[in-house]
Design a protein around this nucleic acid. Structure first.
Lengths: 141, 141
DNA sequence: GTTTCTGCAAAGGTTTTGCAACAAA
DNA sequence: TTTGTTGCAAAACCTTTGCAGAAAC
């Protein structure tokens, strides 16, 4: 009844690419990163491996407000972090807060649920840009 | 320099459908609802009107963890609410919490930002189902 | 009359899939 | 061997868009 997953060179390459960065990426971007390690990596296998990694809980899908799904390899280290997206420069800032996390658990329990995933997304404007007219990170796409 | 938007019958129908429910819906579902009011409503106009409504802030896109974008017509009444999605029955529970909202603002400010949108998504398992083996809402798609 | 809007169908972009060849166990 | 995996190209999906006719102002 076990899944009988196999260790293949393709999967090794994709996993290495997936966790070789701390940046968020799309499926297409992961494909590019994997191809830098092995020119023969195929898009289909990247998609199939991404599905596996997300199912295993090794990788998490995040909503950065873009029109494509993004993946975040940093949840292994800090499983409870959230994302703030700067609308001025598109920079994504990760943050973690124990108080919020506890509150989320309380609210869930009160509603009759046990949370399995908690995600906060904050879209915001940069104070520095508003006050001084310039933002240190403005280049960020 | 003004946008010069026009009041058309098609837009009236789509807006009526969009705010004639408290449920969340996809673009496709809104198209079906609009067609119930007017058989000639076209998909393209639904998409174009959705874009306008979101830009105006009358409607909000929400991430329910599905693979399509969902829209939530309830943000006009309670602009600060969040969503808990039951993984057992797919039911979506809306909740609001002033403490969390304040904490989100504090964290944003500390990071140097002024938030324009705050969204929490919690995926969870139903306690009732786990304890008693049955869930009142199990039918939910 | 001018400008905006609509509907259609085609195009665009992302993700999934059927299948034959291939590789791991 | 047996079973799982890959790569390709096609298919499936959702969303956007060009354009000519229609409607609003």
């Amino acid at each position: 009844m076990t899944k009988g997953l196999r260790r293949t060179r393709q999967r090794e390459v994709i996993v290495e690419a997936a966790f070789g960065t701390k940046e968020h990426y799309t499926a297409e971007e992961l494909w590019e990163m994997a191809r830098r390690l092995d020119r023969t990596a195929s898009r289909a296998t990247v998609y199939r491996t991404l599905t596996l990694l997300v199912e295993c809980g090794l990788l998490r899908e995040i909503d950065l407000g873009k029109d494509v799904v993004c993946y975040d390899p940093n949840f292994l280290e800090s499983p409870d972090h959230n994302h703030l997206i700067c609308l001025d420069c598109n920079r994504v800032v990760e943050f973690e807060d124990a108080h919020i996390s506890v509150l989320e658990d309380c609210i869930s329990r009160r509603l009759g649920f046990t949370p399995t995933l908690k995600a906060i997304r904050i879209e915001a404007k940069c104070d520095e840009l508003r006050l001084s007219g310039a933002c240190r990170h403005e280049k960020g796409a």
